Computed example of a mutant assay.
Amino acid sequence: MSSNPSENYIFITNNEQLAQCCVQWQDATFLALDTEFIRTDTFYPIAGLLQLSAGADNYLIDPLSINEWQPLVVLLQQPSIVKVLHSCSEDLEVFERLFGVLPTPLFDTQLAAAMLGFGFSLSYQNLVAAILDVHVEKGETRSNWLQRPLSPSQCHYAALDVEYLPEIYQQMHDSLVAKDRLAWLQHDCAEQVASFYSNEPYYKKVKSAWKLTPKQLQVLASLTHWREQQARQRDVPRGRVIKDKSCFEIASIMPSQINQLAKISELGPKTLRVDGDKIIALVAEAKAADDLPKALPKPLPVQTGGVLKQLKAQVKQVAEELNMASEILVKKRDYESLLRSGMSGKPYQLPASLSGWRKAVIGDVLLRQLKG
C-alpha cells in the first residue's frame, strides 16, 4: 500500500493488502463505494479502479493487479454494512461483472437526495455543494482508467468520489430518520438491486415496436434475443451486432432472402457476410412459430391528455407538501400504466411500482382523483 501526506488516498495493489484491509472493514457500519471503468467498445464494463471509504481514509483498489476478491465479496454481502453509492446503476454492472454479486444493503445518495428535496437526478458534485458547501472539481471524467501507472491527478480525483460520501451519508441518514422516510429509501434501493436481474424482453424497448403485428413482433423478439447473446459472446455493444432501427426494419419486412436483407438501412456488408444467413433463418423460424407475443399497447389516446395533466398536477402538489422531487413519486410509465388500467370501463388499478410506501403517499390519492 502506498500513501504520503500529499495524497488523499491509500492504493491497494495486491491480494494480501486487500485481505488485510477487509479485516479492518468488517466492523464498519457502512462502506462508501465508487468505480471507474471503460465501456467504449465492449458489452461489459471493464473495471479500471474501485474506490472505497469506511469514513477515515480513502482507498483505491486496483482490479488489474488483484484476482482474489473473496474477502471483499463477503463484505459486499454483509447485511450489517450499508453500501453507500451515488447514482449506482452503472456501478452495479461493474460489481456484477467483477464479483458476480451486487452490494447490499444499498444506500443510493442520489435517490436520497430526491426524497429529501435536493432535486431529482442530482450529480455528485452538486450534492456535495448543496450539503457540505464544498466544490468538487471533476477533471478526469474521460480518463483512460486502464492505463498504468495512473496519474496522480487521476488518483486524486477518483478518491474525491468517495471522500465526501461518508459525511453526506450520515447527514442524509439522520434526515431520512427524522422525516420517517428511511424505510422508503431502503425499499427503493432494494428494488433497484432486484430490478438489475429483471428479464424483461428487450423487444419491448425497441422504438415503435407497438406498430408491429404479433407475427412481426415474434421476429423482433427472436432477433433481439439472438443479438443479446451475440453481443455478450462477442463482448461488443448491441448496436455493433445490429442496431435497434435495423431490427425493427427486419421485423417489419420479414425478409426471406439476402438481397431483401441488403436493403435494410445501416446493415453493412460485414453484417450481411457474417450474420446474414443466420438472420434469414431466424426470420423464417419466427414466421413459422405458433405461440406469438401479444401486440404491444398503442400510445395513449389524445383524449387522456387532460386527465394526465390533472394527475401530474396532483403529484406535484403532494411532492411540494413533502418537499421532495415529484419524479421519484411517480414515473412516466406509472402514469401510463395507471391510465391504461381503466380503459374499456374497467376499474383503475395501481401498477406494482406504485405499491409499497407510494400506495399511501400518492397511489391512493390518484385512484381517488380518477374515481372522482
Rank of each mutant, 00 (worst) to 15 (best):
Q229N: 12
R97Y: 11
S195Q: 15
K309P: 03
R358I: 06
K215N: 02
K245P: 03
I168C: 11
K316M: 09
Q51C: 06
V94G: 03
F248E: 01
V82A: 06
P301L: 07
Q310W: 00
I46A: 04
Q230L: 12
L106Q: 09
P149H: 10
S65N: 11
S2R: 13
K204T: 15
E93C: 09
L322W: 11
H135A: 05
Q147G: 13
L49C: 07
F196H: 07
G363L: 08
S143E: 04
Y157N: 05
K211Y: 12
L272E: 06
Q24D: 09
R97H: 14
S65D: 12
I328P: 01
M172K: 08
A19F: 14
E96R: 08
D62R: 03
Q78D: 13
F196Y: 10
K298T: 11
P166L: 02
L132E: 12
P351G: 03
I279Q: 00
N144I: 07
L49I: 09
V84I: 14
I242E: 05
S246Y: 07
S2G: 13
W210A: 08
L49S: 02
L85S: 01
L160M: 07
M343D: 01
V315H: 05
C22V: 04
I131Y: 04
Y335T: 00
C155V: 05
S246C: 02
G100R: 13
Q349S: 10
F120G: 01
A178E: 14
Y202R: 11
S337F: 12
